[in-house]
Amino acid sequence: MTGAGMAPRDFLTDRLMLGLVVLVALVLGMPSLKPLFATLFPRLDRPLYEAESFVRLTLDHMALVGASSLAAILLGGGAGIAVTRPWGREFRGLLETVATMGQTFPPVAVLALAVPVMGFGPEPALIALALYALLPVVENTVAGLDGVPAPVLDSARGLGMGPAEMLFRVELPLAAPVILAGIRTAVIINVGTAAIASTVGAKTLGLPIIVGLNGSNQAYVIQGALIVAALAVVIDAGFDRLAGWLNRWSQR
């Protein structure tokens, strides 16, 4: 893994813990920074976003990302598994075509297109996010399952493992690191797209940013941006940790 050189584990622990501390501090402590924002932006009557509590917004944001990611994992994982089974192999080309095509669609466009179909609100956002998260999950599930060495599959079959046992005891555990990487990609993209989802009526951390942009209130924008950036960094660091654990468990 490119990146941290000296004492990687310490750096990672620092990143996750540090990020978590910063995130919690920002979310809980933002109201107390009101005087700071008042001084920085003296011309604003409302230097602090107060229409919704930041805690509520953060939780709603995480809920949207979590629900859409879960749906994507179940559906995408299922599709990836199906397409690597003998009976599903015929559909693999189709799945790969759809995934490749879908990868080029910008997330914001998918989000916007959900509105003519479903109207405004959290539902189109949920569907759009789930659809967009499907792609990396499916691709990585297929790649991970493909990467299980053929001799391992051969000896598993030859020893008498049934298809279900092979899938759950051998293939999925060995494909787990790659699948996790796909989930990680999907979730991180979704954290960003969920912020933009405020434009279609979902209440997330993007709301202060959008309201701020519409009303030229830079303080609002910064408040929303800081928290959602911290959230993304923390979630990414969390996945990093998880990947490290998984690597140690599957290799050692």
Partner: peptide, 21 residues
Amino acid sequence: KPEELRRRMGYVIQSVGLFPH
């Protein structure tokens, strides 16, 4: 049933195929 048949036999291949995890 194929699985039952195979569980009654030992199977060794050239590339071993031990489960790495």
